[in-house]
Each structure stands twice: as C-alpha cells, then as structure tokens.
Amino acid sequence: MINAYTYNTLVLIKELCNGCRMCYYVCPHGVFKLNGKVIDIIKKEDCMECGACQLNCPTKAITVDSGVGCATAMFVASLKRKKEPACS
C-alpha cells in the first residue's frame, strides 16, 4: 500500500539559518525544533506545504513548493486549465 503523504517538498539549508525561530512559530504541525542555535526539521512527514515557514524566513533558508492540498481545487484548475490550483 502506497502512502501518498510520505513525500513533500520542504527543504532546509541549515547553513543559512540565523536561528530566529520564525518557522517554528508559524508551523501549524510542529515540523521544526530549535537545536542549539539553528533550526532542525524533526517531523518532515507532517509538513502540509502551507508555505508559512518559507515566507517568514528572513534568510531564505527554507524552500517549499507551497499550495493547496485540495483535490477539488486541483480538479477545478485542470478543468479550467489554470496553472495554480486555488480555493474558489
């Protein structure tokens, strides 16, 4: 049985992290934890790709291909030939 939710696009470049903890504050699923002076990803599989960490990272240490995890939006977007699925 495959699990569609084991893979996601969250990437942290630790060398760029300044330890400001903003990603830790905005993450709704406890994906990050402060480890000494920099952030660690402790639960990558819980990431829902909402993009809050990436947007709030002042040093661009985090990248994630964010978007809506919504099948309806994806079906609607493909029917209307839209590039990026979004809530209607």
Partner: peptide
Amino acid sequence: NFTGATTFTSKSGVKKEI
C-alpha cells in the same frame, strides 16, 4: 475531495493521490 477541508494534507500528497 475532503482533502481540501482538512488541516493537514499537502499539495504533493494530494497530487500523488489523484
């Protein structure tokens, strides 16, 4: 289609499901 109503599904995951 309930994925969009939840608080935890990712774009990558839902795409894979579809």
